[in-house]
C-alpha cells in the first residue's frame, strides 16, 4: 500500500516523467484544494469509461434483480412440457428449456439469486475478514500469528471442496446455506489483505504521532489506521464479488447450491447440460447473463484498483 499522501503528487503515469514535472506542478496544485486519496480516486473514476460502463451495467442488474417484473410479464415457473427445448417463439425471444419454461423469463428472474448472494457474501466477508485481519495486523504477536495460522488453515483446503463439504453437512438447502458456505471460504483472503495493509499503515509516522499523543488503541485503529488501510480491501471485495457469484453458480451447477425451487443461472445451466447436443441455446442464455454479470463486477474492481493504486496502470 503506497503512502496515500504521495498519491496526490503522482498524477502522471510514469515515475521518471512525473519526477520531472512534479516539483512544480504539485506545488501549484496544492495551492488550490489538496485532494485526498478518495476524492482523487473518484476524480479518476468518473473519467474512466470502464468504470462508467461497468457501474451502469451493475445498476441495471440490480434493477433487474429487485424488479424483475419490469422486464418480463412471463412467470418463470409456469412451464409447459410440450414446449420443452423449443426454439424462439413470439413472446419467447430465448425459446424454452427442457421443462418448457420461458428461458428469457428465467434469465431475468435468475439475476436476483446471483446478485443477492454476491452482495450478501461480500458484505459478510468484508466485515468478518476485515475485522479478523485488522486485529491480527494491529496486535501482531501471539494473537496475530494465531489468526494468521487460522487463515493458513482455511487456505489449505481447496475453496470449492471446502464449500461442498460444508454444504453436504446440511440436510436442507436454501440461499442462507449457500451464503454461509461461500463466506466460510471467502473470508481468509480478505483477512490476509487487511492484515498486510494494517501492518504497513501501522508503521507510518502519523500512527506513531497519534500514539505519542496518547490515543487509545481502538481510536488509533478506527481513526488513523482503518481509513488508510481499507483501500486494498475494497479493491479485493469488488473483484471477489464477481468470483463469489461464480462460486454460487458452480455450487448450484453441481446441484448442492441453491434449491431447484429458486430460479438461478447456475441451476438452469445444470439443467440445460443434459440437452447440450440438441438444444445448446438453453445453456447459452443463462451462461451469457452470468458471464456478463461477473465481468461487470470484475471490470468495476479493475477500475477501482487503477484509481486507488495508480502505480499499476
Amino acid at each position: 500500500m503506497p503512502d496515500p499522501s504521495s498519491k496526490t503528487v503522482m498524477p502522471s503515469q510514469d515515475a521518471s516523467a512525473a519526477a520531472l514535472t512534479l516539483g512544480a506542478s504539485s506545488e501549484s496544485k496544492s495551492l488550490g484544494k489538496p485532494r485526498s486519496l478518495w476524492s482523487d480516486a473518484w476524480h479518476d473514476l468518473r473519467r474512466n469509461p470502464t468504470f462508467v460502463i461497468s457501474a451502469l451495467l451493475i445498476l441495471f442488474l440490480i434493477l433487474v434483480a429487485v424488479f424483475p417484473s419490469l422486464f418480463t410479464s412471463t412467470d418463470p415457473k409456469r412451464c409447459d412440457l410440450i414446449m420443452g427445448n423449443n426454439g424462439r417463439a413470439p413472446g419467447h425471444p430465448f425459446g424454452f428449456d427442457r421443462q418448457g419454461c420461458d428461458v428469457y423469463a428465467r434469465v431475468i428472474y435468475g439475476a436476483r439469486a446471483s446478485v443477492t448472494v454476491g452482495i450478501l457474501v461480500t458484505s459478510g466477508v468484508v466485515l468478518i475478514g476485515g475485522f479478523i485481519g485488522a486485529i491480527a495486523g494491529f496486535y501482531g504477536g501471539a494473537a496475530g500469528s494465531l489468526l494468521s495460522r487460522l487463515t493458513d488453515m482455511f487456505f489449505a483446503i481447496p475453496i470449492l471442496l471446502f464449500a461442498i463439504v460444508f454444504l453436504s453437512g446440511f440436510p436442507f438447502r436454501n440461499i442462507w446455506t449457500v451464503v454461509a458456505a461461500i463466506m466460510l471460504v471467502g473470508w481468509p483472503s480478505v483477512a490476509r489483505i487487511m492484515r498486510g495493509s494494517v501492518i504497513s499503515v501501522k508503521e507510518s509516522d502519523f500512527v506513531t504521532a497519534a500514539r505519542a499523543l496518547g490515543a487509545s488503541d481502538m481510536r488509533i485503529l478506527a481513526r488513523h489506521i482503518l481509513p488508510n488501510a481499507i483501500a486494498p480491501v475494497i479493491v479485493v471485495a469488488t473483484i471477489s464479488l464477481g468470483l463469489f457469484i461464480v462460486l454460487e453458480a458452480t455450487l448450484s451447477y453441481l446441484g448442492i447450491g441453491l434449491p431447484g425451487s429458486t430460479v438461478s443461472w447456475g441451476g438452469d445451466i445444470n439443467d440445460a447440460q443434459a440437452s447440450l447436443r440438441t438444444a445448446p441455446h438453453v445453456l447459452l442464455y443463462p451462461s451469457v447473463a452470468l458471464s456478463i454479470t461477473v465481468l461487470a463486477f470484475m471490470l468495476l474492481g479493475d477500475a477501482v484498483r487503477d484509481a486507488l493504486d495508480p502505480k499499476l496502470r
Binding site: 498524477p11 502522471s12 503515469q13 510514469d14 521518471s16 516523467a17 512525473a18 520531472l20 514535472t21 506542478s25
Partner: peptide, 11 residues
C-alpha cells in the same frame, strides 16, 4: 522531451 499526459516537458 518527455511526452506525458500533462503535456510535453522540455527536460
Amino acid at each position: 522531451e518527455f511526452r506525458t499526459r500533462d503535456g510535453v516537458a522540455k527536460a
